[in-house]
Amino acid sequence: MSAARVGVVTFPGTLDDQDAARAVRLVGAEAVPLWHADHDLKGVDAVFLPGGFSYGDYLRCGAISRFAPLMEELIPAARAGLPVLGTCNGFQILCEAHLLPGALTRNASLHYVCRDQKVRIEQTGTAWTNSFGADQEIVLPVKHGEGRYVADTDTLAALEAGGHVVVRYVGNPNGSMNDIAGIRNEAGNVVGLMPHPEHAVEDLVGAPSTDGLGFFTSILKKLVNA
């Protein structure tokens, strides 16, 4: 059987694509580079939207990226069930593309936050979190200036009632409503979170943990069992 193929998207200004590709390879999957200007998903089995400052965060974080040629392919594919994980800027892009509800705004403190962050995995039924234990607490790096999750009252209530809050901060770093660090769509194939699992996969680089590997082993498990 050929290895599961996970696409990693690069926009102008993306920073974390190489780390994401490395994390994909570490768990034994194939990392397939995807370029923002191509109308081509290269037949991948899943897509990772990495962090950074795509298009310089001009206008709003993710606002320009969502109209990139690649996104014209990715948005319908995600709606049709393709597993997609967005971290940090990737999460912002997923919200701007309306694949996930709500929006990410300026941190309440106005400070850029860069620290090791404890979070709780509250949903293990998604394509990207099935390797974790129920309510497992893990530590991942966060690094963002605009990570405060906001949504209107009805959306927030629906997220909570439907079990769509996948990752919750233990100690809120940015003022996010309900301590939300990450959410999923209705089907569970699209997940976005502000923390960075791809930066917590190897002890060698001084990561706070290797807890991030769980996201990558999850998608591998999902694809191999599919």
């Binding site: 300026r106 309440a108 405060r148």
Partner: peptide
């Protein structure tokens, strides 16, 4: 403009 119910920390800082 940010909707009235959305916190505007930049405006507050000003």
């Amino acid at each position: 403009m940010l909707k009235p119910e959305i916190l505007d920390p930049q405006g507050q800082a000003i």
